[in-house]
Every structure is written in C-alpha cells, then in structure tokens.
C-alpha cells in the first residue's frame, strides 16, 4: 500500500534513497582526488566567465614561477585547442578536453584526460574549466581548491548574480586590474558583494599583463602544496583502483 500519497494502490512502494543525484560524479571525483594526493600534486579547478583571463593568468603564473615549479594543465574547451597551445608555449604541459556542447567539465572527463596526460611529475595541476559562471560550480572534479577568475570588465555585481559559483570558491582572482584606471569599476563594491555570498571571502587583485599580484597568487598556491610524497618504486603510488590501466 502506498503510504506516501495515500492512493491506495497496493503495488506502489516507496523506496528511500536519500542520496546525492550526482553521487556517481562524486565517487569519480574522490577517485581523482586520491590520485592527486597520491602524487603529492596540488590540483586546482580554475573557473570563470569566457574571457575572464583564466589562460592569461596561467601564462603569467608560468612566467612568475620561472621553472621553479612543474606546472601542468588540462583545459576544457568546446571546440578548439587554443588554450592548451597557449599554455604549452608558456611552459605549462597542457592538453585539451574537448567538451563539444557540454558547458562544464565533470570528474569522468578529467579522469579520462589523466590517462593520457603526464601528470605524475607535476607539482601543480590546473584544471581550466569551460568558461561559464554557472554549470562548472556543481561538479566536483577531485580538486584541492576552487579558484574563480573575475575580470574588472565584468561588473561588480557578478558575485551576487552567480552566488553558487562564488560560494564554492576558495579564492577569487580579480583579473585585468591594469585596466582599473580606465574603468568605473569599484573594487570595494565587488569585495562587499563577494562577502555576501562567499564565506571567508578571499580576493586577490592580479594583472597577467603587468604581473601585478601574480607573486601573491603563486604564494597562495605554494602554501597549499601538499607535503612531498615518497616515490613508489614503480611509477607513481597506485592505490585501490578498480581499473587495470596505468596513469602516466
């Protein structure tokens, strides 16, 4: 007897589930996270609008790091490999995840990319998400931290308009601050908006063009790097793993 709706149909039974609908993605993300942790790698999910400067920030990061850190990246892109080409040219070992019409990366796409990507000797691994302030926020990829780029040409109210994205951020990079003298953009207003949607709001002002703030961003990354992992004798540490193939 259906007790939920009282319809009296004798064959209808309520099955309690109480589980996240994206539990499959969550499990895959945990799997990715255990890879990253096993490799002693800091994985960053970099998100932001199209044109917010995600790729430019990474190029500036490579320049600032100057070979001190081994950087890697996969870039989610609907149709091209331009971002990965730019990152490779800047010294970040990069590959593209072509998403077709998909508006976000999910943990499965990242995992698949890891199989073809020489991730094991990297210190920091950036997952440059598809340019979008909505969908990517929902999918855990296995990252250690979420970083959101917001450019000064986008308007101070973006955090209030896209609260889900900014609420999930561990750090917001306010990009293109070299343009501030030419704009009416009010930095205090964006800080206020951010404080209303992001607990412990944390904003760094950067310019990929002039290099301003990139040192502070690099320091933020360095502080989050995990302690070095002892190298396993054969390749990287490979733990409980339901599939048989190797990651490079």
């Amino acid at each position: 007897m259906c007790e939920t709706c009282g319809c009296g149909d004798p064959e209808i039974v309520p099955i309690e589930v109480q589980e996240r609908i994206l539990s499959d993605n969550d499990a895959q993300a945990d799997h990715n996270r255990s890879h990253f942790q096993g490799l002693g790698l800091l994985a960053i999910n970099l998100m932001g609008s199209p044109g917010a400067g995600k790729t430019a920030v990474l190029e500036a990061t490579a320049k600032e790091a100057g070979g001190r850190l081994k950087l890697g990246a996969v870039s989610g892109d609907l149709a091209t490999e331009r971002d990965a080409d730019r990152l490779n040219a800047s010294g970040i070992v990069s590959a593209t995840i072509t998403t077709g019409s998909a508006c976000h990366l999910d943990a499965r796409l990242v995992h698949r990319a890891l199989h073809d990507f020489p991730v094991s000797d990297r210190d920091i691994f950036f997952i440059e998400n598809v340019g979008n302030l909505v969908c990517p926020a929902i999918y855990d990829l296995g990252q250690a931290a979420n970083v959101v780029t917001l450019s000064v040409t986008e308007g101070e109210d973006k955090p209030l308009k896209y609260p889900v994205m900014f609420q999930k951020a561990d750090l917001v990079l306010l990009t293109k601050v070299d343009l501030l003298p030419h704009l009416d953009f009010d930095v205090a207003a964006v800080e206020d908006a951010l404080a209303r949607v992001m607990p412990g709001a944390n904003l760094l002002k950067v310019s990929a063009k002039t290099g301003e703030g990139i040192d502070a961003w690099l320091q933020w990354l360095e502080e989050r790097r995990p302690a070095p992992v002892e190298q396993a004798t054969e390749g990287h540490v490979h733990h409980h793993h339901e599939h048989q193939h190797e990651h490079r």
Binding site: V13, I15, V17, Q18, R20, L22
Partner: peptide
C-alpha cells in the same frame, strides 16, 4: 566565516514505484 546550514542539496530522496 559563516557556514551553509542547508540550501545546496541535489538529492534523490524517495522513489514511488510499482514493485510487486
């Protein structure tokens, strides 16, 4: 910093199905 108490759920709670 505040912590979210609720409001980010995407949960399948219950299924009502014919299951003889």
């Amino acid at each position: 910093p505040a912590r979210m108490v609720e409001g980010d759920e995407i949960i399948l709670e219950r299924i009502e199905m014919e299951a003889p």
